[in-house]
């Protein structure tokens, strides 16, 4: 079952007279349940690619099929709905709302999905339990360690039961031991809940937790293969 199908995706940025090509006709497929690491130096186009896959940005050329439907021509609000229902985001800087408790942060995606208040609390608490943060529901981000904050962010990505989690350098701000814990959580979610995980990383050690590695260079795919080729 194909979850992501990129068909000749390209992205050009127009800056005045100049046109800069960030992505040159990328085509690749990712099946449901895969665990993919995306690597490449900065400026290689991997972030642009991830933004397009995450429906935060639109390609200037090609087609992008997510879960069977073409999302490359959708409007702003339609993309917002796709992000809400199909994609969970995990960021390097956690991106939690500072003045909301862990539980409220996790509830946020359901708020925009019209989930009734009574159900939101229970589902958010469940998601926090999955990431091992039971009992910390009332804590605010500044009362949690970096690893715990990232777990809250992962719980937030899980709570709407999206088939895809996109993680942009999720361990970039964490120490090695915590990084391993976070990666083990991703592995577990991928194996147990069959969630497709795509993460961007610079570190081969982190990429080794995945099963497929895609390397970008100068807006093209340099290599794409099983993790053993790393």
């Amino acid at each position: 079952m194909t979850l992501i199908s990129a068909q000749g995706i390209s992205k050009d940025y127009v800056m005045g007279e100049m046109s800069v090509t960030a992505l040159k006709s990328i085509s690749l497929e990712i099946k449901k349940g895969e665990f993919v690491a995306v690597m490449g130096p900065s400026g290689s186009g991997k972030s642009t690619f991830m933004n397009i896959l995450g429906c935060l940005d639109r390609a200037t050329g090609g087609a992008y099929l997510l879960d069977g439907s073409d999302v490359s021509k959708l409007q702003r609000d339609e993309l917002a709905e796709i992000r809400n229902k199909k994609i969970g985001f995990v960021f390097q800087g956690f991106n939690l709302l500072a003045r909301r408790s862990a539980l409220e942060n996790v509830e946020l995606p359901m708020l925009y999905d019209g989930v009734p208040a009574s159900e939101r609390g229970a589902r958010a608490a469940d998601a926090l339990k999955v990431v091992g943060l039971s009992g910390r529901e009332g804590h605010h981000p500044n009362q949690l360690s970096g690893g715990q904050q990232q777990r809250v962010a992962i719980a937030r990505a899980l709570v709407n039961r999206t088939p895809l989690i996109l993680a942009d350098e999720p361990t970039g701000n964490l120490d090695t031991r915590t990084s391993v814990e976070i990666m083990e959580l991703f592995v577990r979610l991928n194996a147990e809940a069959m969630i497709t995980v795509m993460l961007v990383t610079h570190e081969p050690d982190i990429a080794r937790f995945s099963r497929r590695v895609i390397k970008f260079l100068d807006g093209t795919v340099l290599s794409d293969g099983p993790v053993e080729t790393l």
Binding site: A80, N95, Y112
Partner: peptide, 16 residues
């Protein structure tokens, strides 16, 4: 601005 970005990424629409 950052909070708005987070909310948008998570699925907040224009009118939200």
């Amino acid at each position: 601005t950052r909070e708005i970005g987070i909310r948008m990424a998570i699925g907040a629409k224009t009118w939200d």
